[in-house]
Design a protein around this nucleic acid. Sequence first.
DNA 1: GTATAATGTGAACAAGCGTTCACAATAATG
DNA 2: CATTATTGTGAACGCTTGTTCACATTATAC
Lengths: 197, 197
Amino acid sequence: MRAAKRHTAFRRRQIGEAILAMMARDGIAGLSTARLARRVGLVPSALYRHYKNKDEMLDAAIDLIGERLLAQASRTRAATGDPIRQLELLLAAHARHMPENQAIPQLLFSEELSLGPVSRRRRTHQKLRRYIGEIEQIIRVALAQGRTRPAADARTMSIMFMGLVQSAGIYWRLSGRRFDVARYLRQAWRLFRGLLV
Amino acid sequence: MRAAKRHTAFRRRQIGEAILAMMARDGIAGLSTARLARRVGLVPSALYRHYKNKDEMLDAAIDLIGERLLAQASRTRAATGDPIRQLELLLAAHARHMPENQAIPQLLFSEELSLGPVSRRRRTHQKLRRYIGEIEQIIRVALAQGRTRPAADARTMSIMFMGLVQSAGIYWRLSGRRFDVARYLRQAWRLFRGLLV
DNA sequence: GTATAATGTGAACAAGCGTTCACAATAATG
DNA sequence: CATTATTGTGAACGCTTGTTCACATTATAC
């Protein structure tokens, strides 16, 4: 059956989101144009009406990831003014969206990042830096309010914060989704929190 | 030129170490039997004299990783009796061997782990659990000696500890090897240490 | 020293990959 | 309504992949 004719903008978003979903499960390397097309409901060659080649499709997906991360951050900052509470909410969101968000660590460690064009690594680096920058700002505010004299700067702590999520993701994935992410992150948060207040 | 005839045990080790080295740079997906064979100095078909198929080669490499991790841990525990110092040494070792050890995170997030046989995921899970178990024991000793009443159990803290290394690895890789891992881990260590003593 | 087992080689294979292209169908424009 | 631009289709391409197999070479065992 022939697929409906939709605008390129629509298809581009469809394709981007399909890539994200597929990356979350199977990583970026097992992602073939054939499977991607099937998921979107098109024939492989149809993808090339909307993107020049596979590289452009992947880059679009990376942009999507960056957008979502930043949206998550700003949504959290809007929810409350308390920096400590913001970090807590952020961790909870990561725990809640662990399945879909696996696309992120999959991407960060994909071989595409080392084998593919340098521009892609830089693009990804930039997205992550922005997100960590958001966290760093929150931590800076928290440190200003807190009573402790911290043993490290806000940037170090923001990378550590990301490490909490990463380690949870690894273990969750490796355990066959059995590892209790929410519990771990709650405990880890209690420790991390102690470094701030 | 025809390659020398070596015993299978010798070739197996050669192949395993070649996989590790190649994984560290390019991940596990870009790893083809052709490139692997060239690196070992053989012709692709020769690999099949020593392993039944590619899956078996990868499993062997995973075993090698496990061995190295445990060796690292026991070497560190032998170096000093002080648990705090042990953890510090372990972090320093991770910083020093970051380039070679990239094979580990590459493996942990490889799509081979989700697409490949379940046995491989379990195998990897087991290796990592053993290593984290070692860290957990060290932390347990440290907590018993310390004066603080910890806000989380030793297992949580051991996963957090691994998270330090992971986040450093991500950033280092993404920054094009420019990120100062040693500096970051020193600072992160000061924070983590504060949770123990 | 001869037979036997172990290891290496090159050719060949089927399958999957990303991509191109002529052509068909549909939507947008006049 | 006619024209034109846009989107979808199926076949075909060159390439890489993992693997097998008959055959050549070398080490080991008797």
